[in-house]
Measured scan of single mutants.
Amino acid sequence: NDEAKKEAEKLWKNNKSEDEIKERLERAGISPDEAEQWLQELR
């Protein structure tokens, strides 16, 4: 999970869309709710 979150953070810094980041997190096995929460922390 931490690995996926690091990846999400990297994508965020590269200005990827939130949808793309969420999709990537969900593919890594993170629930949509958790993915949404993680994005809010990044904002």
Rank of each mutant, 00 (worst) to 15 (best):
N1D: 09
N1F: 14
N1S: 12
N1W: 15
D2G: 10
D2T: 11
D2A: 12
D2E: 13
D2Q: 13
D2S: 11
E3G: 09
E3T: 10
E3L: 10
E3V: 09
E3D: 12
E3Y: 11
A4W: 15
A4Y: 07
A4Q: 07
A4M: 14
A4R: 06
A4F: 09
K5A: 02
K6C: 15
K6I: 08
K6P: 03
K6F: 06
K6V: 07
K6L: 10
E7R: 03
E7T: 07
E7W: 14
E7Y: 14
E7A: 06
E7V: 08
E7P: 01
A8H: 02
A8L: 09
A8R: 02
A8M: 11
A8C: 14
E9P: 00
E9M: 13
E9Q: 11
E9V: 11
E9Y: 14
K10P: 03
K10M: 14
L11Q: 04
L11V: 03
L11H: 04
L11I: 03
W12F: 10
W12K: 02
W12S: 03
W12N: 02
K13R: 11
K13I: 09
N14Q: 14
N14D: 14
N14T: 06
N14R: 04
N15L: 06
N15H: 10
N15V: 03
K16V: 15
S17E: 05
S17T: 09
S17K: 05
E18A: 10
E18I: 13
E18G: 04
E18Y: 12
E20Y: 12
E20N: 02
E20S: 03
I21D: 01
I21P: 00
I21K: 01
I21G: 00
I21V: 06
I21W: 05
I21Q: 02
K22L: 12
K22S: 02
K22Q: 03
K22A: 02
K22G: 01
E23S: 09
E23T: 09
E23P: 00
E23V: 04
R24W: 15
R24Q: 14
R24S: 14
L25A: 03
E26P: 00
E26W: 09
E26N: 06
R27K: 14
R27H: 13
R27E: 14
R27D: 12
A28Y: 15
A28M: 15
G29L: 01
I30T: 02
I30M: 13
I30F: 11
I30L: 12
S31I: 01
S31F: 02
S31A: 08
S31M: 05
S31T: 11
S31K: 07
P32M: 07
P32R: 10
P32V: 08
P32L: 09
D33L: 10
D33Y: 10
D33F: 09
D33S: 10
E34R: 08
E34N: 03
E34K: 11
E34P: 02
A35V: 15
E36G: 03
E36C: 10
E36Q: 09
Q37V: 08
Q37M: 11
W38I: 15
W38Q: 01
W38V: 06
W38E: 01
W38C: 04
L39S: 01
L39F: 05
L39H: 00
Q40N: 11
Q40C: 00
Q40L: 10
E41G: 07
E41K: 08
E41Q: 12
E41T: 10
E41C: 07
E41V: 09
E41H: 11
L42R: 05
L42M: 09
L42H: 07
L42Y: 04
R43C: 12
R43S: 04
R43I: 08
R43V: 06
R43M: 10
